[in-house]
Nucleic acid binder design. Sequence first.
DNA 1: TCTGGGGTCCTAGGACCC
DNA 2: TCTGGGGTCCTAGGACCC
Length: 439
Amino acid sequence: MFALVDVNNMYVSCERVFRPALNGKPVVVLSNNDGACIARSNEAKDLGVRMAQPWFEVRHLERSAGLIALSANFELYGDMSSRMMTLAAEYAPRQEVYSIDECFLDFDGVPGDLIGIGRDLRRKVLQWTGLPTSVGIAATKTLAKLANHVAKTADRKPGTYPREFAQVCDLSRLSAGQLEQIMQSTEVGAVWGVGRKTSARLNEGGIRNVLDLVRADVSALRKQFSVVLEKTLLELRGTGCMEVDDAPAGNQQIMCSRSFGQPITDLAVMTQAVSDFASRVTEKLRAQRSVARSVHVFFNTSAYRKHDRQHAPAITTPLARPTADTRFVIAAAVRAVEALFRPEFNYVKAGVMLTDLQPEGREQGELDLFDAEPEPPPNGTDRPGLMTAIDALNQRFGRDAVTLASATRPHQRSTHASRQERRSPRYTTRLAEVARAKA
DNA sequence: TCTGGGGTCCTAGGACCC
DNA sequence: TCTGGGGTCCTAGGACCC
């Protein structure tokens, strides 16, 4: 038996913990460049704000409806997430942290009343962190996802599902008839793994709700779609095809990319921006104790700027040997920029991706005859100790406490910085920004 | 004026092998 | 005129997730 625990409107809920005045108000959290809405309170959803909707399209609601917009504060959300995950983990032998705001629990071998456990978990997370969650329980992960959807929707929109399913919903305790009733009143697009394209195609074939899907022919579906949808169908029928993965391997690729506050047409500025991204992404690489063998650099113009000529170059550069040394990654990234950059275009976004990752510590065995090829190392060799020291200092004294001389000084970053005009304090991770209590 | 930033998995097709 | 068949590996692109 599985549970899916999911924070309601995660980013908005994190903000509300520290600013209770936001409760009951329409609130959105904006993406990195203050460009689009990436989280919405229920009240904002009721105003019609869509997921990923551009901010300028809904900005008028600030005046007309009291909509409040905040810049994303990922440092805060990440910290709140780990608190929530720690609490949730106590309730089951195995936990899979699936995203920043949700985790699967595997109740295998846990006796007793799972609804009671779910309610207790919910109460504790709310009391200890201030975050409201929904809990879905069922025999497979896909069904647990569905149960979570029911728990959330029953709470938010009375009348869609029976009120008793709100907040914590256990599909395994329902009769076949009750389950069919729920499946029938749920659109197929709400199923985990069925996205926009697939639901459109399913609808064309007459499959509109979850019950239609459950009753469809497996082999026909597999032929017309894929093994992915076949697995989804089996899971909806109660046949488990997925396990809880409580020790996921590190990522297979790591990326850092951003939109710019203003388009970049200057090689030096682009070089600075890409160097910064290279530095950040290599930090992430070290944090998961991996090394990379290739660096992928890309940048692009904006398809929304219809009068601009479009350009989206990208190049993957193999590194002479697997490394997590920022200096080598920056060197490769800078050469890529110099090879690709064309000043006649308005670039609005760039990124650096590290690929062909492997666990650190096996690098030596990878050398071969041709690796003598000179990767231009600023000081000759990898200096893992140097990088570890930099990471430790930044961890302790704050990001950018120590950077390479080639990196942008924080005061220069405005040349390519994202807009972030509405960010809240990082209450839980920066001593200078903790909440103040008024006398 | 202004349109997110990450990730995963699967499939199809080409290069290459014997 | 007729131009193998089976396998692997790699890459690009698409669909999905949050």
